[in-house]
Design a protein around this nucleic acid. Structure first.
Lengths: 333, 333
DNA sequence: TATGAAATGTAAATCGTTTGACTTTCCCGT
DNA sequence: ACGGGAAAGTCAAACGATTTACATTTCATA
């Protein structure tokens, strides 16, 4: 690989001149500019970004550490990060921790070693807590999407899970449903706790007693929710309505209901959470009423907060909370 | 941010000593090693990876340029790249071109500027041709997954699409189906052409005439295939069997058939291509018989080829072709 | 008490850029 | 002919590490 000095020598000028041409700066005669361009082309010279970033003290890179890249749920978030990042003039690169804290740790450090100007991390797993603390305490510029570190102040964007769950539950109560149950998401995640909390608060505020078996632990996959709902049906304890901690969970519930010959929403109403883009073949199910998370906008906002921190380093950290939208479809009207 | 010199000054030694401690090298007295470690901890010093990579002339990074990160199809490939990359001691970072050649270009250059030791790129779109040529001609170390550049020799891994399509089609012919049609994938992609070619070859070799309307152009989404098949049904031109250029295409076909009251495979047999992980709710369809692409293994192999190129730079470029597996499920037996 | 090897330490070059300070060149107006 | 100033060009110091070659200390041994 050629260097700037070799180009300079070949043309017979100093390397400073070549640098000026490279960066489209003034102070080079048209004649020399032409000759230097020519030499660059023919030597297939590519400037070394490491050396450049080292002296410029800036990489124009935003590093994103995802919980898992292979998860449809994150698509809109990724898009939001990309679009806004590029709009702001940054390169956005992604790493995946594959839901393993140790790997996420590695990649957070990886970016902190000067390879990125700032970091966006996703951390909703409870076991991520030490990592997230590490991140917000040591990384000069970072934004956390979902997740929390009690006692620390930092840039974060999240969704009002508790409020969303509260509203969804209140909707069910207002529609006159009596036997309402909640299928939780994976309790290893923050959001599952927050949504459960919202559910319980709504029930309490409405004076509806929460009996045993009202809250059914499940996770973010369909299988477990389906199994648990099937069991419930077998025991003859079919509820009126069901608020699920995630869309996938809701699909599991619906699958169990439909398989047992029950109708949604006529026999049992179902509300989900997330508004994860359904495959087109989900049209075989009734459309899912759900609380939409504005993940695209959250990604955009994450970048905005990060860039603000980058450009005005003394700005106070900010916490942005998005309200989920109630999206009414067929599964609960 | 502290530097190695500040640590050295604080302890009262030279920076070379600190460097040795950082890299666990001998030549430091236990006493000094302890003091240096202590100073590093308390200053929260993190070595600068750019400076380090600059002098070491190596980043231990593999850059991956995907066609699109937000595409379920790529999940297994991503996992294969990650797992093998980390096993080989590299950090693997991902960029997404979002199916736009100009963005992919940017990210390829991005990695070529010394930010990665090698590049893995995915390029099956026809319009990627100039980009791919750019990549294999200028990047010292790269591997291409899918895609081709006639006349160039480079590291690549791909799947035998033509052969797979040939085998799938021959299977249909052997089962006695007479009116076989092919729904193509998106003809903007290499693979769609190769699979069509395999289909035509099998028909030709079996002496089955390919009449007008036998090949139906569609794409990699369900919607279009569904629409086209519905139209076919409306015209009373229902085939015996159908080979689809991708699983998603096949699902579109099946959806049209089932919606029209036809049974799969009794009325129409369907074979897909890819074996993309179906959502659990796809269980409502008959299981899809398909040609499985070993994407995970292809990702692993991509890394292996790249690392080989990195460690033995004079090795001849290699082209690895995977044979797809025939996976028989219910949609065609 | 030399002797020399092993252990420990330092200085300085290097990686490939950018950039501020400085010098040279050249042209213009008086 | 000369002073002044813009334009063009060069030099060398950064940036923050690693590493080679060399210097110093230690200490057991002859």
């Amino acid at each position: 690989m050629a260097t700037i000095h070799e180009i300079a020598k070949k043309v017979g000028v100093s390397s400073a001149l070549v640098s000026r041409v490279l960066n489209d700066k003034p102070g080079v005669s048209p004649e020399n500019r032409r000759k230097i361009r020519e030499a660059i082309r023919e030597a297939r010279y590519v400037p070394n970004a490491l050396a450049r970033s080292l002296v410029r003290q800036s990489t124009q890179i935003i590093g994103v550490v995802m919980d898992d890249l292979c998860e449809k749920y994150f698509f809109e978030l990724i898009r939001g990060l990309q679009d806004m990042g590029e709009e702001m003039g940054y390169n956005v690169v992604f790493c995946s921790g594959r839901s393993r804290p140790d790997i996420k740790y590695r990649y957070v450090d990886y970016f902190m070693e000067g390879r990125a100007d700032g970091i966006v991390a996703f951390g909703s797993r409870l076991e991520d807590a030490p990592l997230v603390r590490h991140l917000v305490k040591r990384a000069p510029h970072c934004v956390l999407i979902e997740g929390d570190v009690p006692g620390e102040s930092f840039n974060r964007v999240r969704v009002n899970n508790t409020g969303g769950a509260y509203r969804a539950t209140r909707h069910l109560i207002a529609r006159g449903y009596k036997r309402i149950c909640h299928f939780t998401g994976d309790m290893n995640y923050n959001v599952a706790h927050e949504r459960l909390e919202g559910f319980l608060a709504a029930m309490r505020d409405a004076g509806v007693p929460v009996e045993d078996g009202t809250v059914i632990q499940s996770d973010f996959e369909e299988a477990l929710a389906c199994e648990r709902m099937t069991k419930l049906i077998g025991q003859g304890r079919v509820p009126d309505a069901c608020f699920a901690g995630a869309d996938k969970t809701a699909y599991g519930v619906m699958r169990a209901l439909i398989a047992s010959g029950l109708r949604v929403p006529d026999d049992v109403a179902v509300i989900g959470f997330d508004d994860e883009a359904p495959d087109s073949r989900d049209m075989l199910f009734p459309g899912l009423t759900t609380m939409r998370q504005p993940l695209y906008e959250m990604g955009q906002m994450g970048i905005k907060l990060l860039v603000r921190s980058l450009t005005t380093p003394d700005a106070a950290p900010q916490s942005v909370v998005f309200e989920p939208d109630f999206v009414m479809r067929e599964s609960c009207i």
